[in-house]
Design a protein around this nucleic acid. Structure first.
Length: 362
DNA sequence: CAAGCGTGGAT
DNA sequence: TATCCAAGCTT
């Protein structure tokens, strides 16, 4: 049984060092730091979950231009929200953001609540995100513990064990709680994230510039890279699928909406089948007049938890009526504002340059 | 508590 | 090229 780590500094000294560093070296011009409203902070925090700042910025700008406030987001169709989320990944974030906006209109009079409890009750907002929203947009005291803070605090105190384990996470929350001030909450919160993102990085920490180098236990041992401990790894399983590229006489492609949850939930995708037989059986029922072409070469798409081996299966049909509710014809030349799975989007953009009936190269 | 969820950056 | 994993949350 490991002892709970003692703080390396009194809270006041820690805050003083951190904020002094932040004033000179922190980030002060991120898009969501301008016109800092609870709504803008909320959207940014959701987009930033498991996603790097440079990736988020263009998505954030487009999202804000289209949905400047909670009301605009609540009134939108989910399809349009997912359209703006296309390529960002973890689409449950977009679905939950949209759901939460409607809940805020229905239950909070259209104003984002700025208390941790009320925020964490909304879909997609957990303990750390709720803390970040409160601290940054209201200035009230709230504690965060995101990946940056976990990394910095585990190194500073050489906290052993993977932070995914409850006991380890509890220690880190206790340390975060200890250091959090009652003043300058937006700056302190941003400073903790900046420290982890710009100095106390995963692979190449810059301890020479760190305001805590002299008290950092991991640094004293020369073992910065060993903290935080990484998640126990498992082999990636491979799943196999066929994607039907059914085109009609006008060059439009048949899309299918994915189930509301799970992989690419709510997004539009090419119809997928486990094998050729299942695909053929579907065609026999829904598009008996179609002509199957030679499959295009398979490619592998790697996800966090599995590999997906995709074989694109081109087919043609003159016309197909009654596509039903969860299907639509889609013209790659004039795309609709709908959410498209990234590999599907890539395949469809290929259609614009290559002929399906004469695939290029060996 | 483990599994599930995406994409792109860094090494 | 392969691997790890980033401002986590939900089931």
């Amino acid at each position: 049984m490991t002892e709970a780590p003692a703080p390396v500094l009194p809270a006041a000294a820690f805050q003083r060092r951190l904020l002094e560093w932040f004033d000179d070296h922190g980030r002060h011009d991120l898009p969501w730091q301008q016109a800092r409203t609870p709504y803008r902070v909320w959207v940014s925090e959701i987009m930033l979950q498991q996603t790097q700042v440079t990736t988020v910025i263009p998505y954030f700008e487009r999202f804000m231009a289209r949905f400047p406030d909670v009301a605009a987001l609540a009134e939108a169709e989910q399809d349009e929200v997912l359209h703006l989320w296309t390529g960002l990944g973890y689409y449950a974030r977009g679905r939950n953001l949209h759901k939460a906006a409607r809940a805020i209109v229905a239950e909070h009079g259209g104003e984002l609540p700025v208390e941790v409890e009320a925020l964490a009750a909304l879909p997609g907002i957990g303990r750390s995100t709720a803390g970040a929203i409160v601290a940054q947009s209201s200035g009230e005291r709230a504690v965060i513990l995101d990946g940056n803070v976990k990394r910095s605090l585990s190194r500073l105190h050489a906290v052993a064990g993977w932070p995914g384990r409850l006991a380890v996470e509890r220690r880190l929350w206790a340390l975060a709680e200890h250091y959090t001030p009652h003043e300058r909450l937006p700056d302190y919160t941003q400073a903790m994230m900046d420290l982890g993102a710009t100095l106390c990085r995963r692979g190449t920490p810059e301890c020479r510039r760190c305001p805590f180098a002299d008290v950092c236990v991991a640094h004293a041992r020369g073992e910065e890279r060993r903290f935080p401990e990484s998640k126990p790894k498992k082999a990636l399983p491979t799943r196999v699928t066929r994607m039907l590229l059914l085109r009609d006489g006008q060059g439009r492609v048949l899309l299918e909406q994915r189930p509301a949850s799970g992989l690419w939930g709510g997004l539009w995708s090419l119809p997928q089948f486990d094998d050729e037989a299942a695909l053929q059986a579907w065609l026999d029922v829904h598009a008996p007049a179609s002509r199957l072409e030679a499959p295009r070469p398979a490619f592998t798409h790697v996800f966090s938890h599995f590999r997906l081996e995709i074989t694109p299966q081109p087919a043609r049909i003159e016309r197909l009526d009654a596509v039903g509710e969860a299907r639509r014809w889609y013209d790659p030349e004039s795309p609709d504002a709908i959410g498209l799975a990234a590999p599907v989007k890539a395949l469809l953009s290929e259609l614009r340059t290559f002929s399906l009936s004469a695939p290029p190269g060996p």
